[in-house]
Design a protein around this nucleic acid. Structure first.
Lengths: 235, 235
DNA sequence: CGCGACTTTGAAGTAAATCAATGGGCGTGG
DNA sequence: CCACGCCCATTGATTTACTTCAAAGTCGCG
């Protein structure tokens, strides 16, 4: 199953139902819909490769796209996991620069592919669209900085603790549940760890009574001690 | 010497001379100048701290600002080094989110502090300004991704090689010179290395005949072999 | 039931962090 | 002008935590 694009005339309805397009000017939506196609790709299919120039802004309808930087020996560093409602490719599209990551499907996925030139044209036409995009890019940048903060932690326990803390729903929540959005090995690659180390670290934290792990579900029992770990040194 | 802000009425001239403000609409500039002050800080003075809410968009006139994420044991991870003409704080300003990094002066520095609310107002008034900002944020994001690519490399030699390659002036340049924009220990912190490892790595690469190091000046002799290193595994 | 994909667990190797001390450059002040 | 002190860079020895290699175990699914 390879990349399969189906150009369709009427995406206005589909698009307007998505949270991603809320608050977009109706007129812009109408123009964009004309240059938008539906892309269907199967698990492990390649959506985009590092170095190529993107022609479209992609918005994930369903499935999961893994964005990663390939490293020498068949390893990868995951930079983002785009699920339903997430977009990808904005930055390099705006700059006409080569794509900085590989994008492959982690599951069978459906995406909208919005024509890049068209999008940029609408961007300069519509006040609100530009502002939304500024917000989007800002959020991406902050996210990226948070990720580098995680990976900057030297111990694996700190990295995982950092990761878990970023998913706490409220600032003061002491107990909460997380469902890993992808395979453990992808999460590990996002944290800059090998899957083995990630597995061991989760096991260790479980033994310490910090968390409970059950497959892709992680229960955080003690948010406070978690927070301490990230600020401390040592194990 | 601590943070010292001098509000001045007429920055229009100063600002319009800076490359950063080229192509900004004159009307916006006029409005912004009214809400802009000059900030003078000495080496090692704190401009902003992680977690605080920024009120201004800063533009470096002269000097050097080190942006870093503090890690537990008195270590830091440098995320950017802002020199003359660089701005900082856009993203968290746009989102009204806490600043994700510490900002301290690496040298005695002068900056413009543009009022955040004012900037945002002008942003929504001016087509071109919004577009420029989108470009700015996009560049930042790409930069950030390049940085995570560097730090994702497992060996120190690969990390340094990556860093050197990003500073090659032309795509095909085999020989070129780099002047490190800050202390070696700050560069090391940007690469996710200890200063000791960075020093050793530079020494090693020099012995290999890849580069010549002379203080903060680095001459790359063989860009091709450098490129190979980043894609290979092992030492 | 059995296969494939993913995860867990174990044992060994290695590269980078850490600790410690020396050396060089520069500005300050005698 | 030299001497001192400070900051930064270098070099060496040790430790440690992560990767790597290998194998077994789990889960879901055809």
């Amino acid at each position: 199953m390879n990349k399969l694009a189906v150009p369709v005339m009427k995406f206005s309805e589909t698009m307007s139902r998505m949270a991603f397009f809320q608050n977009w000017p109706a007129e812009a939506m109408a123009h964009l819909a004309a240059g938008t196609s539906l892309v269907t790709i199967g698990k492990n299919d390649v959506l985009a490769s590092k170095g190529e120039t993107l022609q479209h802004l992609y918005v994930v309808i369903s499935g999961l796209i893994r964005l990663y930087i390939p490293l020498g020996n068949d390893m990868e560093r995951v930079v983002a996991l785009a699920g339903a409602g997430d977009s990808l490719g904005e930055a390099c599209l705006m700059l006409d620069e080569p794509c900085p990551y590989n994008a492959v499907a982690g599951k069978d996925s459906h995406l909208l592919a919005i024509d890049g030139h068209l999008f940029r044209r609408e961007l300069s036409r519509h006040w609100e669209l530009a502002n939304q995009t500024i917000g989007l890019l800002s959020r991406r940048l902050m996210e990226s900085l948070r990720d580098t903060e995680i990976c900057a932690q030297r111990s694996s326990v700190q990295r995982v603790a950092c990761y878990l803390m970023q998913h706490q729903p409220a600032l003061d929540a002491q107990c909460y549940e997380i469902f890993l959005p992808a395979r453990k090995q992808d999460i590990a690659a996002k944290l800059g760890l090998s899957q083995e180390t990630f597995s061991r670290t989760l096991g260790f934290m479980q033994k310490q009574g910090l968390i409970q792990v059950d497959g892709g579900r992680i229960r955080v029992d003690n948010g406070q001690r978690l927070a301490q770990i990230t600020q401390r040194e040592g194990t």
